[in-house]
């Protein structure tokens, strides 16, 4: 954990020269080249939301809507408070017939709900858990007076643990772990894992799906917006 913390704190920014090359390609309208350059940068810095955002831009400009949605979603998962990333993700999703804010939910409420990323909420949840348990242990070991002193802190920590735990669980329900994006132009969802099964639905490129199971070269996916599921070629989906 210490190594991970150090790595997170001391993460160096992406090398300037390769980034400038990618940016130059993008500015010149060579979007495929820019996408390749951004992908190389991301391989070295996978946790940099801005690079995923830039890659999404390059994919979208080169006409690859599905891959653009994938990159924007990764950027959003890493840094949900970035307004630019949120806007571009919504822009790309609308092209695939979806919206970032689920229907029926007020925009500000969804923005507030997704203000913290799942990994940040996980950290806050565990921080509150550690605090609660240590305070509770100290209260058990201490005298009656120390227990009285710790009581307020303990209740606060426990409330934070509950809050962040529920928030984290709620976010995982909305943005589950096993997700993907359709990258094929007109993907067919079949009723079974094979070409012999009939096509139940077609789905547009860029549509976000939840991966339910795998069978060989096929994935069973559920469309988050429509609530339907089917089997799709694994090559038609890019996992998040």
């Amino acid at each position: 954990m210490i190594i991970a913390l150090l790595a997170a704190l001391l993460a160096l920014p992406a090398a300037a020269a390769p980034y400038n090359d990618a940016k130059a390609a993008y500015d010149a309208g060579h979007f495929d080249s820019a996408a390749s350059a951004f992908a190389v940068l991301i391989a070295a810095h996978p946790g940099d939301a801005a690079l995923h955002y830039d890659l999404g831009n390059a994919w979208l400009k080169s006409g690859k809507l599905g891959r653009a949605c994938t990159s924007y979603q990764r950027a959003f998962d890493l840094d949900p408070r970035d307004g630019d990333g949120r806007r571009n993700l919504d822009f790309a999703l609308r092209r695939s017939g979806e919206e970032l804010t689920p229907p029926g939910i007020p925009g500000p409420a969804f923005t507030a709900f997704t203000a913290l990323s799942a990994r940040e909420l996980s950290g806050l949840h565990w921080l509150a858990a550690w605090t609660t348990l240590i305070l509770a242990g100290l209260a058990l070991l201490g005298s009656a007076q120390s227990r009285a002193r710790l009581r307020g802190w303990l209740l606060g920590a426990a409330a934070a643990w509950l809050l962040f735990g529920l928030w984290w669980a709620g976010l995982r329900a909305v943005l589950p772990a096993g997700r993907g994006v359709i990258v094929a132009e007109r993907a067919e969802l079949r009723n079974g894992p094979g070409q012999t099964f009939t096509v139940g639905y077609t789905a547009p490129e860029g549509r976000r799906v939840r991966i339910l199971s795998e069978s060989g070269a096929w994935l069973e996916v559920g469309l988050l917006k429509e609530g339907v599921k089917g089997w799709i070629l694994a090559s038609s989906v890019e996992k998040l």
């Binding site: 954990m1 980034y19 939301a49 955002y53 830039d54 400009k61 996980s122 806050l124 949840h125």
Partner: peptide
């Protein structure tokens, strides 16, 4: 209506990364 322009990398939240590292399973 179009997408917004590129963003320079490296603008990561140290607090967010620390929280993420702390919250990682272990």
């Amino acid at each position: 209506s179009d997408i917004l322009y590129l963003k320079a990398p490296g603008g990561r939240s140290a607090l967010g990364d620390t929280l993420a590292a702390f919250g990682a399973p272990g």
